[in-house]
Amino acid sequence: MVEPTVPVKKDGKGHIIDKRAGKMTSLIANKKVLSLNLFAWLFLAPYLLFYSWFMLYPIIKGFIISLYQWTIGNERTYVGLGNYQAIFKDGFFWEALGNTVYFVVISTPALVIAGILLALIVNSRLKGTGFLRSAFFLPHILSISVISSIWVFVLQPYTGLMNSVLKTLGVTQEIFWLDSANLAWLSILLATIWWTVGFNMVLFLAGLQEIPDDLYEAARIDGANSWHCFRYITLPSLKGVILLVVVLQSIASFKLFGQSYLMTNGGPGTSTRTLVQYIYETGFRTNEMGLASAMSYVLFLVMVLFAIIQFKFMAKKD
């Protein structure tokens, strides 16, 4: 790189601001800026290609599709906002949205509390801490298909593990876990906790390890018991992580598909059918791509709302 012979000052962005530098320097500077621009775009191009092709374009195309009556065979009729009107009048859409929100509401507190509990166990300096941590995290690496299959077998009436354990504990009647709406939700919730809580535990564990020990020692000297320590030191210190996990968990739960699809197929009836499953069925089974796309947009807007909350809170953390 050729350096200007006249001493120059640069402002924050590297532009030359010394007028004495003259014509020669500004030419060199221009050339440098140009080649930097070119370089930057060359570095960005491969990623941006995929990003615009598979992220930006689908968002735009999705909106366009949602304005049409559109089938996979590419027959289409422009219907304006008709699809949106249709879904707002569709009882099944509201049911699916309701189911999804219901799962967010039951699963988020459960997964936050369970995550804190496991993190506390792993963080209490027992012998074999590494084993405990790995064991709690282990289900997270299995795929959703394996998790669902295991739980369907565990919960199966007559031949399942759950009922036979309950029988030895004195429950005489056979429980049909996946055949009533409430129990089906409970089953999906159990499987989800087992599958994903290890992730939350790791986040809480990191939070716990940032709390200085002196805080606890000082509190102990002042005569605080374990509950006091938890209530007045641990919980307030974890506030940031708890917020983060609540937001992440709400987003993940809102996208529920695999567990409920594989374990109950939305049943009994349509009582555990989630929004994502309804979008899938509308688009791919009844071949109403336009309608399904409009639903996706509603899902998308809800997710953006969640994300804005997340960004706001993350910005605060920094």
């Binding site: 374009y57 689908p58 987003i251 791509m289 996706s296 947009y297 998308f300 997710m303 994300a307």
Partner: peptide, 13 residues
Amino acid sequence: MVPTEATIIPLFL
């Protein structure tokens, strides 16, 4: 902010 779940229809087409 964009979940795959929301773009499955255009992606598939």
